[in-house]
Design a protein around this nucleic acid. Sequence first.
DNA 1: GAGAATTTGAGGTACGTAAATCAAATTTAT
DNA 2: ATAAATTTGATTTACGTACCTCAAATTCTC
Lengths: 341, 341
Amino acid sequence: MKPTVHDIARSAGVSLATVDRVLNGRPGVRRITQEKVEEAIAVLGYVRDVAAANLAKGRTYAFTFVLPENDNSFMIGLREEVEQAVGRSGAERTRIRVVDVPPFDGQALSTMLEGVLAERPDGVAFVAVESSDVQAAVARLREAGIAVVTLVSDLPGSQRHHFAGIDNHAAGRTAANLLGRFLSGRDGRVAMVAGSMLVRDHRERLEGFLSVLSEDFPRLAILPVIEARDDPAIAEELVTGLFRRYPDVIGLYSLGAGNRGILKAVRSLPEARRPVIIAHELTRSTRAALADGVVDAVLNQDAGHEVRSAIRVLKAKADGLPVIAAQERIRIDIFLKDNLP
Amino acid sequence: MKPTVHDIARSAGVSLATVDRVLNGRPGVRRITQEKVEEAIAVLGYVRDVAAANLAKGRTYAFTFVLPENDNSFMIGLREEVEQAVGRSGAERTRIRVVDVPPFDGQALSTMLEGVLAERPDGVAFVAVESSDVQAAVARLREAGIAVVTLVSDLPGSQRHHFAGIDNHAAGRTAANLLGRFLSGRDGRVAMVAGSMLVRDHRERLEGFLSVLSEDFPRLAILPVIEARDDPAIAEELVTGLFRRYPDVIGLYSLGAGNRGILKAVRSLPEARRPVIIAHELTRSTRAALADGVVDAVLNQDAGHEVRSAIRVLKAKADGLPVIAAQERIRIDIFLKDNLP
DNA sequence: GAGAATTTGAGGTACGTAAATCAAATTTAT
DNA sequence: ATAAATTTGATTTACGTACCTCAAATTCTC
């Protein structure tokens, strides 16, 4: 049978109260007694029953998720995952609140974070925008003892505890590797469509992509990056213009959202002129495009994993516990038409 | 505040005991009373606190994992994941026992399953071998009310409750897609190395691989499959022989284990003659080969996910609860040198 | 060695649910 | 209408841990 606190009290020859004091770091225990208890814990292999402990504590965690009001499928999906987490919040002893901010707007984000600070939650998760205001807001959150996690897009210079998202540099490199190999032997231009260079995830993807492409696939000419603000309508217009200007685009890397618009523009091309496409995020439109061959590969970050990981980390940080980095690493999923889930 | 059984008792105007009877399907409640209670549950949005319930029940689940005594890295890794689950068993209210069987031996496996049956665990997980003896053993396990899950390799005709593994057909198709595109434009032969055609996972991978290759990449000639019993030494010998016989092998799909041997054989070739390689399972040797360019892509099934999923399913089945299929789907991970974890 | 300070013990209550007992109330059958 | 059967209520104990109080024992200080 699994040992309980009673067992270690008996084994160490002390009372339950003393075991409790040692276990929960309460004062009033001599060094010698503490060591006796700790030895008993080690010998019996005692591990705290977390479920029972939580039940007894009745602690709940108040977390706030700050999400951009983007209307692309990925952000909508992310929001849904957060909503689902809200739905589970009873079972997980969390109270999760969602607040909205305008996208790509550091000013608005930092103001919102200040507002969140006033409510003193136990933790905050947000999609970062690069800005010194945001950095300052994070610093103040941490000063107030609030756990801070960036979600999807990181803010490395800041005091955030953790980043729940993929390695975007690696994602860009992977995209370049696939695109380069799929185009092996051919000459032509490669285009890139991003959301905004203000968000770190897009910048990093681009960086990784360019470094591999220029190093390993020098026969491919690289066009200047297009910024479409993750908006399908803007993307469609810009990409249509791109194809008009450059008839020899043979590869396209869509590293942001708004794929719906990009794909619409591509589909209006004759089949022979359509480029090899690597896109990000498995949504309804990218999935359909994968299935019918318009898109060749999709790199995906699982929004559900990211949200659940963020919550686990916020809990751990709120309790001052360490996080197991390997367990919280978010993977880059690669989907071809043959391994669609 | 989250409603408790007390709240629903008060709200329904019945006693705690009656609520308990309804909640746990105990007899002795009139239809009308039951409906009152159920309405109160719905109105208040009550959800059972699983942690508290488990604490009160003190139920533990006895599970047995039957693992083949293969000494390739994947099986060793799988075994480690099971051991880790054993380590967590205290916290998860499970008692997991691991037993060994000789690999690729239906007779030995079915005998072992009969032995497991005698101990009447709550559930059994095993790596299937195709054989009618095994089918019969599964039928007897189910008759005895024991939950049965196949792990890594399935046994579809049998009565098993669930398969915890990847879609191997899709994996084979994905491998063919990648290999075909990486070889685009080139002519030559493609070789396949499997463990054994007796295990379903290898057969299915091969099937998927061949169907895509023959359909989408007709310029690639397909060599007969090599069976190396997932043994590095055997694989090395056979692959070395293969290269001697066919100098124009430009692609290789390693769909089983024993990659260590295959890679040794490949490394002994001059660089110019090395084929494009797609392999399965991210192990020390495939990871190293990916990093230095000997292997081009690795398809991986996460053994940890598989084991944890198997345990969740066994628990659910032991309690007669449904499983959420989408949650238990094991993904095919694709690794290139740029997205290694 | 007396007094103060610290350490320890004993015991209780609480968390939310499960499971049991026994008595009381209600319904059903005759 | 009465007995039998069924349904319901009231109450208790338990799971493993947290946290509290108060008294008793031990150690420390001068």
